[in-house]
Design a protein around this nucleic acid. Structure first.
Length: 242
DNA sequence: AATAAGGCCAACCGCATATGT
DNA sequence: GACATATGCGGTTGGCCTTAT
């Protein structure tokens, strides 16, 4: 019987983050199950992937959802339900986990209370709208509703699930690269796609001399609680020369 | 000052789906 | 087509922090 190597769980340390970033920057993403071993991590591929996707990958915005983002989440949740990845695809800098957490801890309560408050007041308006929807097929009506809510035409429900052309900044911070990727490709591939358009081999040098103390999420800077505006890697990805 | 309660969020778990053989 | 493996997704949990008492 093959003994499973010890796999660490729980919060990621700064050192682990550093190892994972350094490895991905150098070798890219190729196999989540194998990568952690080669990166010197005692973590499962699943845990590593999650850490990367939700926290370490470039171009992630954290905390402080704007009013517009809140409205978008509320609208899309109404239309799509708890399809967080589909919702996140419409908010490219947000992770599905972040959106899910934000919804569960704040927006859901707000929506429920607003619905309670507005139920009595909007009965007549709602009746008008619902009769409009009822007169068409289910698909048509939901699309109509979608168009109204999103202020942009959606011809099919697939259009809604299809994210806008994915765009990202190259690690060098010099070029904005638009990548027209299929949602099913996943963000892992998007990342590689973005980097491939750059001089990918330059990446290893880029991280040398990087001030990890300032960059990594577990640094003292980011540890001061509720420093939600601080985006751990933005400085690095957007302007590595800072 | 102590501690209980609640909020928040990172991370885990289990299941579904995609991909490779 | 069947099976194995990898990846993606959403629900849930555990622990830290803040606030109230």
């Amino acid at each position: 019987m093959v003994r499973q190597p010890y796999l660490k769980k729980g919060t990621w340390s700064r050192d682990e983050d550093q190892k994972l970033i350094a490895y991905i920057v150098r070798y890219g993403i190729w196999n989540w199950n194998e990568m952690p071993k080669h990166a010197g991590l005692q973590r499962s591929g699943k845990s590593s992937r999650l850490r990367w996707m939700n926290y370490l990958r470039p171009n992630i915005r954290r905390g402080n959802f704007t009013r517009e983002e809140e409205e978008t989440i509320i609208r899309l949740q109404k239309i799509l339900g708890n399809r967080w990845s589909a919702i996140a695809a419409r908010l490219p800098q947000r992770t599905d986990n972040d959106i899910k957490n934000y919804w569960n801890t704040r927006l859901k309560k707000r929506v429920i209370s607003e619905n309670k408050n507005s139920t009595a007041a909007t009965t007549s308006t709602t009746e008008t709208n619902s009769s409009m929807v009822e007169n068409s097929s289910d698909t048509d009506s939901s699309l109509m509703l979608t168009n109204i809510l999103l202020d942009s035409p959606v011809s099919t429900i697939d259009d809604l699930l299809e994210p806008p052309a994915y765009s990202c900044f190259s690690p060098s911070g010099s070029n904005l690269v638009a990548v027209d990727d299929k949602y099913s490709m996943g963000t892992d591939n998007n990342l590689v796609s973005c980097w491939e358009t750059q001089s990918y081999l330059e990446q290893p040098q880029m991280i040398e001399g990087l001030d990890w103390e300032a960059v990594l999420p577990n640094s003292e800077l980011s540890h001061s609680h509720h420093q939600q505006n601080y985006v751990p890697l933005d400085d690095f990805w957007f302007n590595p020369l800072i």
